[in-house]
Structures are given as C-alpha cells and as structure tokens.
Computed example of a mutant assay.
Amino acid sequence: MDTKIFRHGEIAQAAAAIKRGELVAFPTETVYGLGADATNEKAVKNVYLAKGRPSDNPLIVHVNSIAMVEKYAAEIPDNARKLMDAFWPGSLTIILKIKKGALSKTVTGGLKTVAFRYPDCQPTLDLIEEAGVPMVGPSANTSGKPSPTTAQHVYHDLHGKISGIVDNGPTRVGVESTVLDMSTDHPVILRPGAVTKKDIEKVIGSIDLNHHKVGKNETPKAPGMKYKHYAPKAQVYIVDEDTDWDKVVEWIRQQPFDVGMMAEEKVLQQEVLPMNAIQFSLGKNVQDASARLFDGLRQFDDQPNVKAIVTQAFPAHDLGGAYMNRLNKSAGGMHFDSNAVK
C-alpha cells in the first residue's frame, strides 16, 4: 500500500479515504492522530492492527462540534458543557457516558463511556466535516513508541500500513491532550496535558487527579494509563532539577557509546561536551520542551550508537506536569545518578 501525503487543498481526497473505511493520519495541536471512521467497526479494528495496539485500550473520538457529541453521549452534564465552552476547540478530552449501542465496543474498549475531543486544528476539523463522521484518533505511531509531532514521524512508523497522512507541519503543543473523566460523580484528570487542573478548576471548581494504577485484567478508561508509552530503544534517564550537569557530562565522557543529551539551550551552551554527547535542544522553556520532547526521543531512536538518553526535568506543575508525566513514562521512572547508572 502506498501512503499518500495529503497537502493543503487535498482534504476532500483524505475525507474520501475515510469514507471508504481507510486509515488517514491527521494533525492536531498536540500530536498527530491515526484517523478512521468511528462508526465503522472494521476501520476501527484496522487502527489497532496498524499500531499494534492492545484491544482493551480505548480510543478518543474526535469531533468538530458539540452537536456531534450529542449524537452519541447519553448526557452532557452542565459542567461538561461549561468546559466545552471554555476549552473547545483545544487540548481537553472529556469522558462521558454514551448511549447504548451508539458506538462499538471496539471504540470504547467495552466500557459504557467514551472520550470526546474537539481539536484546535482547522485541517482536521475540515476533514471531519468533509467525511461527515467523527473519527477515532489515537497517536499515529507504533504502539508504545514516542508520539508523532510531524507527518514525517507518522510516515516513519506507518508507511505502507495506512492510506495517507494530512501534513500540517510540526504540532504546537507536543504532548497529548488532558483527559478528564466527567462520567463519575466527581471529575478526575486521568491524563495531564496543556489544559491544567488549575485551568479546569477556574471553570467548574474542585477536581481530582488520578492516582489509580490500572490492573492487569482491568480496562483503562483513557489512553496511556496501562501500557508502556513513549519509549525509544535507548534507556532514558531523567536529570532532576538539582542535578549538577557537570557530573552528567563527566558520566557521558566515561561511556563507551554515544549518549543523547536533551536539555535547554542554556544548559547545552554552558557545558563543554565530549565527542560522544549527541545534543538535542529542548529550547528555552517548558513550552518549548513539551513541543520538542517526542521529536528528540525519535531522533535518537534512529541513531543505533545512542545507548542512553539523559533528559532534563522541569517543575511538575502546569504544563510541566504533562511534560514530566510523559518523560517519566518514557524513562520507566529511571533518574540519573552517576553512582548508580551503568
């Protein structure tokens, strides 16, 4: 199968592929998603196959209006509508109870809820409008690998497996949307993103953060809760805020292999780096770092001589909370310690 790159002005062609039951990757402000008609069970099953994704991992349904949500949701609580008014289109996914039989168990993972998102990306809103259906849209990558933030990342993982990719350049945010469960008595964030707990509480009052560990035989209510995510081949180590980067550089110098070094420009510029330190700039702040994190991990994944990646931590509040959530998953919780890392 040839995988076509759809450019501006070719949305109708991409929508025609969706209507035929084919898979088309699409851009959002967060990461690229792997699109299929959410009402076509066979097409949705092919999403799992293309990604190598576990079938109990539910999919987010992308819409281009609240009216589209109303066709499938059993109810939209008042607080959910307030959040839609405040943050849609945008990086907030809302889990709601759905009408019986409205969407297949292939979409919901067998749950009685589904996650809805209205992305802030006009080409994708046009694609949904032209196709006339909501689209499932997990990240358009091989399952478990760093999420794609460019069309080239998608092509790397999925060319020959999907019909096409709508190319809209690099994504702006770089980490997936906040997932908020509104199907329970008290709302809870299941996955942090650019829309923060503080942002949400300004609109609807107190909410919770999820601390539940999903069991082996339990179906997660949102992506990223159960399975390994965002991991390149090389081991990632988190460099904590209070770590002396001179010690990190000295450790790199002693290694018999190349080490990826992901840090802010001010860190990279102040260090005299050894030949085996392969640098990747995370920019000037946490906003830049969030947008660049997955790109850096993917670049090192294509360099077989890189056997370890040291990556700068940021304070885990606001957007930094989403950044650190992804970095922790990528690293498997491993932190840099020059005495312990081998």
Rank of each mutant, 00 (worst) to 15 (best):
D244K: 04
A115H: 00
T178G: 02
V259I: 11
F294L: 12
R81Y: 04
Q312D: 12
R298C: 12
A222W: 00
Y72D: 03
I66W: 10
Y230G: 05
M324A: 07
L190W: 01
F26A: 04
V154K: 02
F116D: 00
P77M: 10
M262F: 13
L158G: 01
M324P: 11
T28F: 01
P119F: 00
N339P: 02
V188F: 01
M275K: 10
T113I: 05
M135A: 11
D240Y: 03
K112I: 09
K161I: 15
T178H: 02
V166P: 10
D318H: 15
T243E: 06
I200H: 07
T3A: 13
G332K: 01
K226C: 03
V47T: 05
G160W: 13
D78P: 01
N325Y: 09
I66S: 14
A289I: 09
N141D: 03
I207K: 07
K226S: 00
V44T: 00
D185C: 09
P54W: 07
F294H: 15
F280G: 14
M84W: 04
F257K: 09
E29Q: 11
E265G: 06
T39L: 11
D295T: 06
Q235K: 07
A25F: 10
P27F: 08
A277F: 09
G333S: 02
I207G: 04
F336A: 11
S147L: 07
T108Y: 02
L180V: 07
P138S: 08
K42Q: 08
P170R: 15
A86L: 07
E75G: 05
A277L: 03
R117T: 06
V166L: 15
K228G: 08
P119W: 00
S290N: 13
S183E: 04
K221P: 06
T113E: 02
T196P: 12
M324G: 11
V47Q: 06
E264D: 10
D185E: 12
Q13G: 12
A67G: 03
K100F: 07
V236D: 01
A36P: 00
G260H: 02
K19N: 07
R117M: 03
P232Q: 04
T124Q: 10
K216C: 09
T30G: 07
I252N: 00
V173G: 13
C121Q: 14
G90C: 04
G35Q: 07
W245P: 00
V236S: 04
A12W: 06
S281N: 14
F280A: 14
T39K: 01
I238C: 09
K284H: 15
D295A: 14
T124L: 05
E176Y: 02
L59M: 03
L282V: 12
K213W: 00
P274W: 06
G137S: 08
P148N: 03
F116C: 00
G132R: 12
Y155L: 14
V114H: 00
G110P: 01
M225L: 10
D208E: 14
E10C: 12
G137N: 05
V249E: 00
P192C: 05
A291M: 09
F294M: 14
F314W: 15
K307R: 12
M324F: 15
D242S: 12
I162C: 10
D208R: 08
G109Q: 00
V236E: 00
L103W: 01
L268Y: 15
D244Q: 05
S55P: 11
T243G: 05
N40F: 04
P148Y: 10
M182A: 02
D56W: 08
F336T: 08
M135T: 09
A234E: 01
T219N: 03
I128L: 01
D2A: 15
S183M: 06
